[in-house]
Design a protein around this nucleic acid. Structure first.
Lengths: 321, 321
DNA sequence: GACCGATCTGCACATATGTGCAATGCGCTT
DNA sequence: AAGCGCATTGCACATATGTGCAGATCGGTC
């Protein structure tokens, strides 16, 4: 790769173009002539500048105009809500996509150098990972919260792809968690958890500054990955139903009242207990779609999140009844 | 004004449009249909959103790519430089305009609620004031650093217009300083400085969190306002030359070595002494044009600024010789 | 209710920006 | 030196955005 010098030039030009475009309001035409290149190259250069995070665009709600929805969610649940505007008519696929894109951009300012972010995996997080904006950080890391392999497939491809997208976007070190999502026998987990290689990861998880997760729900329109990926068998499902489970966070299940004790599946899960999770100073939950409402209510009851990124319709439903 | 309800709606729509445009990357066309209006209205709505500061755009230099110029200025002068790219061929008018526009945008993140910003007046600050982006702050104020009236005109219009632009942009309270730029007799100043109404302003100045100023220079291509506005007579000029003055900050003069003692004019000036100024935690200086180089070197020697916003050519010249 | 002025709207057009594609250039291999 | 693969460039065209203008709308006034 002899693009050291060239790549450097490209970044320098991109930075200059970004300055001229965003700080001095020149047109691309004018920038082109200053940079002695064509307008179309400038267009591409600016695209590049945005892509590598030289340009950061934020949308603020003036403090005196926080939507009443956000305010009411804060009052009722003590959670900072970020309500993503999406028309009610949008289908579930697009809705998730749009919530995920907003989430990715909201996340940017939350994560910085010297931080550790724990992430769960699932359709929601996968979507978020595809929309991350690059941001250079130093000495930061991404740690996987729960295992991803199961009886049928290793599942690693799916989860590790999400992880590596996060790692790439932030220039962070990626810490995988190479264990099954669920153990067949809780004792296996106990034993494995004593291994030094695993304890190292558990230690990192314990020290994370941000946790990011979606909500699993067996009843969602698009049932969550865990429920359809072959991670659970019929007996497991029955057991969950029997335990009155309404959802899960990183494969740890909970009931409508937020409790998660005495749910046998949790002893077999590789995810962090909800009480451990609540020790993290910032816990961001991304939710899209009304069908996750029961799971969301349960998660709120469990006090598992500090920030909620949610689509408008679901936010409204949350406040009804 | 019955636009309470309407204005509110407009802001709400603008916020929504901004979200959809900047966070979800929808086209204006798509936003128009979600908002049930025309695309052109959306274009205007987004313009409005930017105007009232709902949207904030920042251009970062990735830490590992701070231009060597900025780095060298930091090494030599212990000052954070913000180098504004402007082609060398640009004329002085446009150059000032572009530096001012960048300065206005760089300033945004520096100023916030509960802060007090002191500002000087002059061609540079006037240009900056015309490019400020709105940003809502609370309990903040703008305080004038030096008087503006002189023997011929009150000069108030000029200075107060600058002040009020700053006040409007930040929603800040504006504290004028209704005294002459220079007193004929230093004793008049001493006496006036004991007045409670004046002391109140001086107290506010003493507590400011940011100071913003340009540099005055008798030798600049566009000689500074102070030197042509009738503030000084021939005897004054002679005295300044005799004192080896190379420039001024808020009508306080200094020499090439940064010293400002024993310059008789300063006893008559309404501006804050340089030692008082250096107590402010952030002191931002805006400079455009090579002809201000001697004034800039002097100001740097005086240690009067913590941040320097300067055009590229001048920054380069600064590092030569 | 007619009138006025100020504001808002959408259309039609003017600009500005994004992108497929063919051409060019550059480094490397043979 | 010729050949190859890959990245970069500018052109021409496709989209997307900005804006003058005429008509519509809304309060307030007489």
């Amino acid at each position: 790769m002899a693009n050291e010098g060239l790549g450097s030039d490209k970044v320098r030009d991109a930075l200059r173009a970004a300055h001229l475009y965003y700080m001095q309001d020149l047109t691309m035409e004018a920038i082109a002539s200053e940079l002695r290149t064509s307008r179309s190259s400038v267009s591409r250069l600016l695209g590049f500048a945005r892509e590598i995070g030289l340009v950061e665009i934020q949308v603020h709600s003036p403090a005196d105009r926080i939507s009443s929805v956000q305010e009411r969610i804060r009052d009722q649940y003590s959670v900072t809500a970020h309500v993503v505007p999406v028309p009610d008519s949008t289908n579930e696929i697009d809705r998730l996509e749009r919530v995920a894109m907003s989430a990715a951009r909201i996340l940017g300012p939350f994560f910085d150098s010297n931080m550790t972010m724990g992430i769960a995996w699932g359709s929601t997080l996968s979507a978020v990972s595809r929309h991350l904006q690059e941001k250079v950080t130093h000495n930061s890391q991404i740690v996987q919260l729960n295992g991803a392999s199961n009886a049928q497939t290793t599942g690693i491809g799916y989860a590790s792809e999400i992880m590596s997208r996060f790692g790439r976007a932030f220039g962070a070190y990626v810490q995988q968690f190479p264990v099954p999502a669920f153990f067949d026998d809780p004792r296996t987990k106990e034993v494995l958890w004593r291994e030094r290689s695993i304890r190292r990861v558990l230690e990192i998880q314990k020290r994370m500054d941000i946790a990011l997760f979606g909500l699993g729900s067996a009843f969602a329109d698009v049932p969550s990955h865990v429920y359809v990926g072959g991670y659970l068998d019929d007996a497991d499902f029955e057991q969950l139903t029997h335990s009155d489970v309404v959802g899960d966070v990183a494969t740890v299940f909970y009931r409508a009242d937020g409790s998660s004790d005495d749910i046998p599946m949790n002893a077999r899960s590789s995810g962090p207990s909800l009480s451990l999770l609540s020790k993290v100073s910032r816990r961001v939950c991304v939710v899209s779609g009304r069908s996750k409402l029961p799971a969301l209510r349960g998660a709120l009851a469990a006090g598992v999140m500090t920030d909620l990124i949610v689509d408008e319709a679901t936010a409204h439903s949350l406040l009804e009844a």
